[in-house]
Each structure stands twice: as C-alpha cells, then as structure tokens.
C-alpha cells in the first residue's frame, strides 16, 4: 500500500528533464574538451606552421614577413630534402609492412590460446608504453658503433667476423631506425589485430572449420579479410605515427651519418629550430601533410569498402 502511494505521488511530481536526458546537449558538452584539445594543440600550431612556411621567420620570431613560396623554392632543389623524403617514405613503408606481418603472426599465436594470455598481452604492450627517450637510449647503446651489444653477441656466436658500424653506415643506420620503429609499433598493432581477431564471431570460425577449410584457408580467406577494417586503422595510425616521428631518428642517429638518415621531421627540426630558419623548417614539415592526407583517405576508403561487405 505504502509503495503504491509513493508511486502515485511520484507520478504527480514528475522529475524535471535533467542534462543527462538531453542527448544532444550532453553530447556537445562532453565533446567540448576533446574539441578544445584538438583546436588548441593541433589546430593552432597547424595554422601557425602554414603561416610560417610562407614567412621568413627566424629563431623563434613569430613576426610574419611574407615571402610567398620562397621557402618551398629553397627546399625543392635541396639534395638533403630529397634524401629526407625518400627516408621518410622508406622507413614508414618498410616498418609498417614489418609491423603488420609481425603483429598478425603474433596475434594469431596469441589468439590460438595460450596460458597466461593476459599477462602476455600486458608484457607485449610494454615497449609501447616505455617513454621513447628511455627506450632509444637503450637502443643507442645496443647499436653503439664502438660498444654495440649486438656486435659483441654476434661475434661471440661466431656469426660476425668484421664489425658493423650501425650508425656509421647509411644502410645499417636506416635498418636500426626501422628495427626500433618496428619494436615500438608492433605491440600496439598486435593488440589491435588481436582485438580484430577476437571480434570475429566464434561461430564464423567454426563454420569455416566445419565447411572443411584448413588452417591457411581460414587465415587468408576468413580471418584476414575480417580484420582488414580494424587492421587498416592500425596501419593508418602506424603510418601517421612513423612518418611524423621525430624522436627515433633524432635520438638514434640525429640524422647521421652525414645527414643521410634525415627524415622530414628531423630535417625540419634541424633547419627550423637548431638552424634558426623557422620558415624553411615549417615548409619541410608541411611537406608531409598532403602525403599523409592522401594515405589517410586511401586507407579509410579501403577500410570502408571492406566494411560494406560485412
């Protein structure tokens, strides 16, 4: 009785519509911090960079003396700039291919179900969580030209007779950069691919089993296509992350030997910040933009197309 009475009274005094009931407004409010973040920390510097690339600004001075395309005209014929473009693309493409292959294999192994999977997943993510500057220090030592742990190990195993000057040789230095980039990115990609694999409904896998598909057919015809949309997110992230990354190259080789491992970001840093030519630095950095935009569009379209089928 008392309950019925309470209910009746509650009906008489309906609660006001609260903020939580107003999906549209609530959505906007909750989105606002993210939007502010993007605008302030990405949008403003981005606009600033575009303006700087058309100016003769130097050494931190933000006064804009319009010089038109002068900065771009300066960098276009520069052999160092060409080298940086090639390196950026090379490092990004090679490391992303390696990352995706490794990540997929690891994810398949993990997905096959092993004991202590959670612990392993956690351990796997560690390289990604380690501050890159710390990790790079360790890697610098491993690849050190004089004290390389890798060389000593290879020698002890009798696999190396000469000496590898990891950062003293362009090819080796690029290899080292790629190795570290792969090491950094592959745990993240593995977790994403693993999430993709886990999200494949169990009965679809079982249907393939019952339908008579062997291991490779299941991997290539069922699992791969189904993780493409989510894996392309990993690739997209990896590309953007690697192509714009300054730290790996800066800490490992600082662009050396003789500027042969410069990527666009390190060259922009060297020219714009260390060299004091902000305008040119901005022009170099901005060169990545259309390339990345294009890669993003292609990948997103690709991911979308596969999604329509699913």
């Amino acid at each position: 009785m008392a309950l019925a009475e309470q209910l009746r009274q509650a009906r008489l005094r309906p609660a006001r519509r609260t903020l939580a009931d107003r999906g549209d407004l609530l959505g906007r409010i909750m989105l606002a911090p993210a939007l502010a973040y993007v605008l302030l920390l990405a949008g403003v510097p981005f606009v600033l960079a575009i303006m700087l690339s058309f100016s003769s600004a130097t050494a931190g001075g933000l006064e804009f003396h319009w010089v038109g395309l002068h900065n771009f005209a300066e960098i276009l014929p520069d052999p160092l700039f060409h080298r940086a473009i090639i390196n950026t693309i090379l490092i990004t493409v090679v490391s992303q291919i390696a990352v995706m292959v490794l990540a997929t294999v690891t994810a398949l192994v993990l997905d096959a179900g092993i004991r202590g999977m959670r612990v392993f997943r956690f351990l796997l993510l560690l390289p990604w969580a380690v501050p890159v500057s710390l990790a790079a220090l360790a890697w610098v030592w491993m690849f050190d030209s004089t004290f390389s742990v890798i060389n000593w190990t290879l020698r002890a195993l009798g696999l190396l007779h000469g000496w590898l000057y990891w950062f003293g040789d362009t090819t080796l230095a690029l290899t080292a950069i790629i190795v570290v980039d792969v090491w950094r990115m592959f745990p993240f990609a593995t977790v994403i691919v693993l999430a993709g694999l886990t999200s494949i409904p169990q009965d679809i896998r079982e249907a393939a089993l019952v339908d008579g598909a062997g291991f490779w057919r299941r991997v290539f015809q069922i699992e791969f296509p189904l993780i493409v949309p989510i894996a392309s997110v990993a690739v997209l992230f990896g590309i953007a992350f690697t192509a714009t990354d300054l730290t790996t190259v800066y800490l490992l080789t600082n662009g050396g030997p003789y500027n042969s491992t410069q990527v666009l970001s390190t060259l922009a840093f060297q020219r714009g910040i260390l060299g004091g030519d902000l305008g040119q630095g901005a022009a170099i950095a901005l060169f990545l933009l259309p390339v990345l935009a294009l890669a993003t569009i292609i990948l997103l379209r690709f991911a979308r197309r596969t999604e329509i089928g699913s």
Binding site: S145, Y165, F167, G168
Partner: peptide
C-alpha cells in the same frame, strides 16, 4: 679512423 665516428655524439669520444 673508422665509421664509428660518423655517428658520434658529444659524449662518444670521451667514452671511447
């Protein structure tokens, strides 16, 4: 000299 010096940083020659 050898190629190691191509990748030296400010601390490398001290260490070597």
């Amino acid at each position: 000299i050898n190629p190691a010096v191509l990748s030296w940083n400010a601390a490398s020659n001290n260490q070597a």
